[in-house]
């Protein structure tokens, strides 16, 4: 699984732009020349990225730079928005997830997602976790074990093991978000997308999620969108900086990838002036 995609068409990439994306050692996902449109509006343009296996990649940038849009394109959640369209290729294990005959349902099962606002189902804690395996028809030997395993991995088991039958709505915000992470890993995805997962949490809950991410990266590949630069610096192996480009004629804002590299390089030695300005707090 880990190496199946290493023979992806590297020469094409190199010919195109020779970007840092090529230096990701074991890419599980590749974003190649991607534009995302909403109707006629081009929200993101010309993105080339690669996400390394068992790495955490952070997408940062000011509001409206298209990072969430791009994230939602990575597991075809954007399909649900009317008029949304992706051009270019997003390769997952070497296969274009927008290719003909690819089932978006299967894409979403393999590439899970955690949202900005914790969104537990109005069901019991147990049923929140069991829901995914049930609807996807996963062959599960013991649902109880799977629920325990998922909650343990999400560092929530000890807090909820005595109240699995209680409604998930009664949990605190931080617990709800860890429940959502447990729910996402219950269907055994390869990649977990996180869309500002700590935006609505307090600093302590945020810290717990960040610790959890470090645990999770041993088994999963994580792509996280964050507004919080310190968070990116703390958790991410690689960081991609996006910004919004305002077109001169129409004034339309289009998200572009400015710079992509290891988090250390982006934060300590950015090559692009715009990255440096953003990192040092001069705008955004």
């Amino acid at each position: 699984m880990a190496t199946a995609h290493d023979d992806a068409p590297m020469h094409l990439q190199a010919a195109r732009n020779g970007s840092v994306a090529d230096h990701v050692a074991r890419p599980i996902m590749r974003v190649e020349n991607v534009d995302v449109y909403y109707g006629d509006f081009r929200a993101v343009t010309d993105v080339n990225l690669a996400f390394g296996l068992n790495e955490i990649t952070a997408l940062i940038g000011p509001s409206g730079c298209g990072k969430s849009t791009l994230l939602r394109s990575l597991n075809r959640m954007n399909d649900l928005i009317e008029g949304a369209r992706v051009e270019g290729e997003i390769l997952f294990h070497g296969e274009n997830i927008y290719g003909k005959g690819v089932d978006p349902i299967e894409v979403r099962r393999r590439i899970g997602m955690v949202f900005q606002k914790p969104n537990p189902f109005p069901k019991s804690i147990y049923d929140n976790i069991a829901y995914g395996p049930r609807v996807t028809g996963m062959k599960v030997e013991s649902m109880d074990d799977l629920v325990e395993e998922s909650l343990t991995r999400a560092a929530l088991w000890d807090e909820v093991k005595d109240k699995l039958k209680q409604s998930a709505i009664g949990l605190s915000g931080g617990q709800q978000q860890r429940l959502c992470i447990a729910r996402a890993i219950s269907v055994r995805p390869d990649v977990i997308l996180m869309d500002e997962p700590c935006a609505s949490l307090d600093p302590i809950a945020t810290m717990r999620i960040e610790d959890l991410m470090q645990e999770l990266r041993k088994q999963y590949t994580i792509v996280i969108v964050t507004h919080n630069m310190q968070q990116a610096a703390r958790v991410a192996d690689r960081t991609a900086f996006f910004t919004a480009q305002v077109s001169e004629g129409s004034g339309a804002r289009t998200g572009v990838l400015v710079e992509y590299g290891t988090t250390t390089q982006i934060f300590e030695d950015p090559t692009d002036q715009r990255t440096e300005d953003y990192i040092s707090g001069r705008f955004g």
Binding site: L80, R108, G112, F115, F121, Y131, G132, V187
Partner: peptide, 14 residues
């Protein structure tokens, strides 16, 4: 809420 639908669809539910 749309979040409930998104949460379900993101798990691979139809």
């Amino acid at each position: 809420p749309a979040e409930i639908r998104d949460g379900s669809l993101a798990l691979g539910a139809t």
